[in-house]
Design a protein around this nucleic acid. Sequence first.
DNA 1: CGATTAATTAGGCGATGAACTAATCATTGA
DNA 2: TCAATGATTAGTTCATCGCCTAATTAATCG
Lengths: 116, 116
Amino acid sequence: MQRVFEALSSSVRRKILAYLAHTELSAGEIAGRFSMSKPSISQHLSVLESAGLIVGEKRGQFVFYRQVEDSLLNTLNGFVQEACPVGRPLRRESAALADERRRGEPDADEPEPRRR
Amino acid sequence: MQRVFEALSSSVRRKILAYLAHTELSAGEIAGRFSMSKPSISQHLSVLESAGLIVGEKRGQFVFYRQVEDSLLNTLNGFVQEACPVGRPLRRESAALADERRRGEPDADEPEPRRR
DNA sequence: CGATTAATTAGGCGATGAACTAATCATTGA
DNA sequence: TCAATGATTAGTTCATCGCCTAATTAATCG
């Protein structure tokens, strides 16, 4: 999940995903759509691939990239469920928190007190 | 949109959102749950607020933060529409989710990011 | 009015990210 | 086999991020 959000934090990478939304493209074809060096784009592609958002397949001289459809949706879905108010049954932590707040009782979750 | 994804790229900030999923909390209450200085948390809160994901309201001595519910969902929705290969799978996923929720099904746990 | 508590601002510092050029690897085709 | 093309790896530079401590602003209370 960390890698996915990190990957999505770049507008270039989001744009690449948009380019790959409906077709596969070779690394060069992708790079050709940006005013940026090919190695830089290659780096972005590798970030996206590490995040499991796209996959590259080498065919002959070219590497064709395409989206891994499931993972994007699953990740967003997972996040929404965790952090969205209207999302479904509360994550334990948050539920406990809301509950505890109702009682006005503090608690130590994972943090340790900090000096100052 | 840029700011939103930037904000979400930090696990600390995502965790803050999770804490605020079902209740509001003061800056200090939030900071108390992390082993990190208050100024650092304050900075994270300001990033989240700049992204329009949360809002802080000063009441007396305290600043209470809560989520801005709409914007998070709208942003994710906008991105999904733009970058997802098909609109269909989303609906199917959503339908399955709703269905599953109707049955009171426990959730699949957080998937671990894959190695590569 | 001080003193205390909550929170933010300011400034500094190390780590990380993102870009480039140059070099290398792999495949194709004359 | 050798030149050309596609792509990645290596190595460098520069800006930004994220954390810290110290100082400042704002509100509460004796």
